[in-house]
């Protein structure tokens, strides 16, 4: 899947981020090429989520450079809406809009933000529901769907904006082991279609299977990174080894 000569779509250079006195990111750099799937793993509080929240401007950074699809995030005149049209994001707690049906959740952003025609967005929404294997649930409210189903609607909702990059923030952490699978299958489909994906995850098996590159973060820095094979089998850093020994 790895495209050797593909253009870099997300470039993060020496990023620093603090919440008040607490420095969460202490100089993180990574590059993501178009069509690449990367997984960020690491213990809680290591800054994984903060890192990907910086990519779509939900968190502002205090130092370094982030460039997404040619948009410079440190530019004071940055148009966040323009950036977010290119970057989709899926959250741990699904965060569907509870007062809207699955279909309405999906077509809301295309019709209101991209000003697309309603019929066209609906047609696309039906296709997306099919893609996430939820045909027939179009008119269900989030409260009537299971966690896994809600998460797949959330993925469809992000995809409806035709993003260039998808961010997944621990999307299976709130699900039970069985429903985790249905969500992971959806993400895997996406990855195989060539969508650029950045995942924060605790699903090691999934990371090993799907990722092109794995980054291990601890305490605000990237401790180690490499292809899944070398990362899981030949980890060099003692911190990585310790982490892997506890979960594998």
């Amino acid at each position: 899947m790895l495209k050797k000569n593909a253009e870099t779509i997300v470039s993060i250079k020496d990023v620093h981020k603090s919440f008040g006195q607490l420095e969460v990111l202490k100089g993180v750099s990574l590059d993501v090429k178009k069509g690449e799937v990367i997984c960020v793993i690491g213990p809680s509080g290591s800054g994984k989520s903060t890192l990907i929240r910086c990519i779509n401007g939900l968190n502002d950074i205090q130092g370094g450079q982030i460039n997404v699809c040619g948009i410079d995030l440190t530019d004071p005149k940055l148009d966040k809406l323009e950036l977010r049209k290119r970057v989709g994001m899926v959250f741990q707690q699904y965060n569907l809009f509870p007062h809207k049906t699955a279909l309405e959740n999906i077509i809301m952003a295309p019709t209101l933000v991209l000003k697309q025609d309603k019929a066209a967005s609906e047609k696309r929404a039906f296709e997306l529901m099919q893609k996430v294997r939820l045909e027939g649930k179009e008119h269900a409210y989030p409260g009537e769907l299971s966690g896994g189903q809600q998460q797949r609607v959330a993925i469809a909702r992000s995809l409806a904006m035709n993003p260039d990059v998808m961010l997944f923030d621990e999307v299976t952490a709130a699900l039970d082991p069985e429903t985790v699978k249905e969500v992971l299958v959806t993400i895997k489909d996406l990855a195989q279609e060539g969508m650029t994906c950045i995942l924060v995850t605790h699903e090691m098996g999934f990371a090993r299977e799907v990722a092109d590159h794995i980054y291990f973060t601890d305490n605000g820095v990237i401790v180690e990174h490499g292809s899944p094979k070398t990362f899981f089998n030949k980890a060099k850093d003692p911190r990585t080894k310790e982490f892997l020994s506890q979960i594998l």
């Binding site: 809406l81 977010r84 049209k85 970057v87 959250f91 965060n95 569907l96 809009f97 209101l112 959330a154």
Partner: peptide, 24 residues
């Protein structure tokens, strides 16, 4: 989280307030 979800879908603040938060 509702604000964040809406923000990440590129809704403007006005849209989030009137279309997503207030109806809820």
């Amino acid at each position: 989280a509702q604000w964040e979800a809406a923000e990440s879908l590129a809704f403007s603040r006005q849209q989030i307030l009137w279309r997503i938060i207030l109806p809820q």
